[in-house]
Each structure stands twice: as C-alpha cells, then as structure tokens.
Design a protein around this nucleic acid. Structure first.
Lengths: 146, 146
DNA sequence: TATTGTTATACTCTATAACTATA
DNA sequence: TATAGTTATAGAGTATAACAATA
C-alpha cells in the first residue's frame, strides 16, 4: 500500500458517523429484501444462522435475544418451509434447527435482492476490497469489547 | 496510494457481512451510551438531529419514523431539559425543536461514553482514516439509492 | 381544502415468569 | 436439582386514523 495521505485525515467522530451511516443503510436494504420474501429482520437473520444446524438455545445466543422469542421465529420459518426442527439424538430435550433446500433458495434470493448493497460493494476495486476488509477486521474486535 | 493487492480480494458478500458487523457493533455501543443518560436510541438520535433547530415534521423525516412518534420523543427530551419547542414565526402551525445548553452537554457525554467505538476508530492511523472515509463516501450514495 | 402537531388506538417485537419434559 | 423448549403475559416502540388549529 502507498504511504501518502491524499487529504486531511478525518476525526474519530467523523469516522464513527460515516461507518454508522453505511451500516444503517445496509440494514435497511437487508430488511427490505427480507420483507419481499415474507420475513422480518429477525427471521431472515435466523435463516442465515441455521445454514449449519443449530440448537434452539444456541440460536437465541446468535440472534442476541431471549430463548422464548426463538420459538415464534422458527415457527415462522417452518410454516414457510424454510427450516425444520429435528430432535437431538444425544439429549431429547434439545431441538436442532436446520435449513431446508427451499430455505437455501430463499436465502439466496434475499442476497440477490439486496441490490443497493450489491451495487455499493461491487463497485469497489480489488485494492479497496482488501483495505476495507482489513480495516473491518482491525476495528471489529475493539468494537465488540475486550 | 499504493497499487499492490497484499492479499486475496474478499467477495462482495464478505464485504457486506463485515461492514454490517461493524455497523451493528457501533449501534449497540451508541444505544448503551444513550441509556446511561436516560435516553433510548430514538431519543438520542433526535437529540443529535436538533443541534440546529428543526420543525417537528422535518425531524420525523430525519428519524425515518411517523410524525406521531416525534411528539413523545420530544416530550422526553423536554422533560429532561435537553431540548425545547419554539413556535415558528412564519407559520403558527409549526413548532421548531431546538437543543438546550444542557442538551449539548449530554450529547457530548454520550459521545465520550462510546468508549468501544472511540477506541476502535481512534486506533486507525491517518492513512487508514483517509481510506475508510473515502470508501464510506463512495459506498454511501449507492447504498442510499439512486 | 390542505397541512402541522397531537391524541387514541392497535400491532409488532422483545423480555420475564411459569410450565413440561427431559437430564 | 438443573436445563431445553414452550407458553402466557406485559412492556416498549412504532404506525394508522381521527382531531383541533392554522394556512
């Protein structure tokens, strides 16, 4: 990478605002794409999370919500045929949620429908991609707390 | 800037996920900082939006919510002494919301309290700052739609 | 007649607590 | 006794519709 700074370095507050704006726009795009397939944000996030089978309680952890909410979220995915519950062999209390073929199809369509985000990130060249990726990797651990 | 790509360029989907994760962590930090000052995310966002005086209806537009919600949000800011309503001189139907000195103080404290985000973005060097800033400026217009 | 801000109301999402069936 | 999943319930946040005041 080059070492010259081509314009005045923005303040920490500026960077925070800019990244927040990009993140907010991304989530709007994601929610809109999910809604076109009959899912709200939580349900679509859950569908992404069960690409490998996940127990109900672990799914609650990934979604950052209480376990009681997961029942309704997975009910909706099952009603649409996008995921199903399986009894766990080792512990009969546990139910494991797994995505269906139809679920994978819908997940792919949601990704394709995120046209704004697709356009935005697809417009970056290889060098910009590497830079943005490494910046995210550097910033994220600090943002998620020590 | 240099022109060498130092590692494999990530896919568009990878970049979307990475930026989304950074954005989500930022908003968690923001909400937690606001809560320490008795405000929820919407109220804190409104406080930021009224640093210059804004009519109620325009504020609804900035917050991306229905005008009926703004009444309660501004009620809360007024109850805490962080903002106040002023009658508009030109049109007596309009009420203009303005931040108070105390509001500016609290807004500054919320920013200071965003320790995770502060640490994360303060860790970047000048070249990284310029790069991230320019990437956000490039990506944001596309994300916000044509 | 249209618009601003407000109120009343219903809906959605989430969390808490109690329950069951397993362990 | 503790844990996984579920159910019932309450709370917060938001949107819709109706209203008074003003344009």
């Amino acid at each position: 990478m080059g070492s010259t700074v081509t314009s005045t370095a923005p303040t920490t507050a500026d960077l925070m605002e800019a990244v927040a704006a990009v993140g907010a726009a991304y989530f709007q795009d994601f929610a809109a794409a999910a809604a076109r397939h009959g899912l709200n944000s939580s349900q679509a996030k859950a569908l992404k999370a069960v690409q490998e089978p996940v127990p109900m309680r672990a799914l609650a952890g990934r979604l950052g919500c209480d376990a009681s909410n997961v029942t309704g979220i997975v009910d909706r995915l099952e009603a649409l045929g996008l995921a199903h519950r399986e009894a766990a062999a080792a512990d009969r209390r546990v139910k494991i949620v797994a995505i269906t073929e139809q679920g994978r199809t819908v997940l792919g369509r949601i990704r394709d429908d995120m046209t704004r985000a697709q356009d935005a990130f697809a417009s970056l060249d290889d060098e910009q991609r590497v830079t943005l990726d490494s910046l995210c990797r550097q910033v994220l651990p600090l943002l998620l707390g020590q």
